[in-house]
């Protein structure tokens, strides 16, 4: 339990640092931008109470907002991601798994589950983020293109990071 909290805190610090120092400066004009910091929210323990999950997501978003000068924008997107996370867990996981305090990581959950988890979650997050950022439906195709392209790059970055820290543990489901 204590170990899980410490891991999450370290992950939070490292990913926020990477996001504001590195990924903020990478991008292809306005079209593609990377937001792999959302891995923080993806990897929060499964069985945590909803209120705590929303609060932590909100705070993560606010921290990023503070550095991006866009108060509330990332917070809203992260809250949407948290809601997606709850539904996704409820649909795909068994009841005893839902109660456990495991980290839903690549090693723990298997490639297929983790991939779809990250992919759809990133889509939800980026969709909310870009729609609120442009705040209108004019030029919607351009926004849609940047949502999809950014999602692809964010997912790739997240997968790379997950593979970097991949440690084979007791696998629950076999692919």
């Amino acid at each position: 339990m204590g170990k899980v909290i410490i891991f999450n805190v370290i992950r939070f610090l490292v990913l926020i640092l990477l996001q504001i120092a590195l990924f903020k400066n990478i991008g292809y004009y306005n079209l593609v931008s990377f937001y792999p910091y959302i891995l923080i929210i993806f990897l929060l323990p499964i069985g945590m109470p909803n209120l705590l999950l929303f609060t932590l997501s909100f705070l993560t978003g606010l921290t990023i907002d503070a550095f991006y000068d866009s108060l509330g924008l990332h917070a809203a997107a992260c809250v949407a991601l948290a809601l997606f996370r709850i539904f996704f867990h409820k649909i795909t996981l068994e009841v005893d798994m839902q109660e456990s305090f495991n980290t839903p990581s690549l090693a723990e959950m298997g490639t297929k589950w983790f991939l779809s988890y990250v992919f759809f979650g990133t889509l939800v997050h980026h969709f909310t983020l870009f729609i609120i950022e442009t705040f209108s439906f004019t030029n919607f195709l351009y926004t849609l293109a940047s949502i999809i392209l950014s999602s692809i790059f964010t997912v790739l970055t997240i997968l790379l990071m997950s593979l970097l820290v991949y440690r084979k543990k007791s696998r629950i489901s076999n692919i």
């Binding site: 609060t55 909100f58 108060l71 509330g72 809203a76 809250v79």
Partner: peptide, 8 residues
């Protein structure tokens, strides 16, 4: 939470 964020 979402409403709070949007208000912000």
């Amino acid at each position: 939470f979402f409403v709070v964020a949007i208000v912000l």
